[in-house]
């Protein structure tokens, strides 16, 4: 026999009177299951207000957060991927590209914007993970290369927001050479003494880590991001035992000396604009 007896019925609304909740009104944090309205979630810059998990966002959101009043001029919008190798695995690269475009409404895995950040000019390249895993192909390399050209010409600081699984296998060695291309170009920016801020977000791995992402005058990261060269699965296979707790997180990478600072999303804009002000001296 139970200790309590229910005197009223539970749900009293009849099915007929039940109100439907429209899709997309709520966001559930995948880490702590906290529920937020989509509006609150956006106001909170897509960070969970309970566990502070920084959820993955794209260039649209970053540009909105970082540029003054969300205003910027987009550069190099017409560049599109070719298919130099006529690559085909389970489907052709051309089909993959088309599907990625339809799904993401993007032309490739990076966008470049020029605008003001707290009244200072800045060029920001931002990667989009939902375009073939943010993978780096010729377009990503070329757009970064041209963004650096613009930065050199106008003498304004550059920021790259990395979010990528690494190389784009469907462009094979062309993809590999984008590492060489972007790093070589960055050496020109360094020579011209124009500040380059690298922001590593969840996830930044492979060829992107092994090129421009690690070459910032200042390397910043969002909290809790996965940052590494080899992916955790590959490292685990190599060593054959479980990986240590917190392996390849922003905090781990900071502790080992490869990041200057971990910055919360709400503090990004002010931290970066202050850095640029200090560099300008």
């Amino acid at each position: 026999m139970g200790w309590f007896k229910r005197i009223k019925d539970g749900i009293q609304t009849t099915t007929k009177d039940k109100k439907e909740t429209p899709e997309g009104l709520w966001h559930k944090c995948p880490t702590c299951k906290q529920m937020l309205t989509t509006e609150e979630h956006a106001e909170n810059l897509w960070v969970c207000d309970k566990c502070e998990k920084h959820h993955r966002i794209g260039s649209v959101e970053y540009f909105h957060i970082l540029f003054d009043n969300g205003r910027f001029k987009e550069l190099e919008t017409s560049l599109k991927s070719g298919d130099p190798l006529k690559f085909k695995d389970t489907k052709t690269y051309v089909v993959r590209l088309k599907q990625a475009k339809d799904k993401s409404k993007l032309t490739d895995a990076i966008r470049v914007g020029h605008g003001k950040m707290n009244d200072q000019d800045i060029i920001i390249c931002c990667m989009d993970f939902n375009f073939i895993g943010g993978s780096m192909g010729s377009v990503v390399g070329e757009k970064i290369s041209r963004a650096i050209d613009a930065s050199l010409k106008k003498k304004i600081p550059l920021m790259i927001i990395s979010k990528s699984g690494g190389a784009r296998m469907m462009e094979a060695a062309f993809s590999l050479m984008q590492m060489a291309k972007t790093s070589a170009k960055l050496s020109l920016l360094a020579k011209a003494k124009i500040p380059y801020i690298s922001l590593l977000t969840d996830p930044t791995t492979g060829g992107v880590t092994a090129s421009f992402a690690m070459l910032g005058d200042v390397n910043l990261a969002e909290p809790g991001a996965l940052i590494g060269f080899a992916g955790p699965r590959i490292v685990k296979e190599t060593i054959g035992v479980d990986l240590p707790e917190g392996f390849q997180t922003s905090e781990f990478v900071l502790e080992h000396g490869f990041l200057d600072k971990i910055v919360k999303r709400k503090d990004l804009k002010n931290t970066i604009s202050n850095l640029i002000k200090l560099f300008a001296n």
């Binding site: 590492m179 790093s183 880590t209 092994a210 090129s211 421009f212 992402a213 690690m214 070459l215 590494g228 060269f229 080899a230 590959i234 490292v235 190599t238 060593i239 990986l243 240590p244 392996f247 390849q248 080992h256 000396g257 490869f258």
Partner: peptide, 16 residues
């Protein structure tokens, strides 16, 4: 692709 390689910055070393 080992644990220590990651700790000592494999990505940074190649990028540099």
């Amino acid at each position: 692709p080992g644990v220590e390689a990651e700790e000592r910055g494999q990505g940074e070393a190649i990028a540099r």
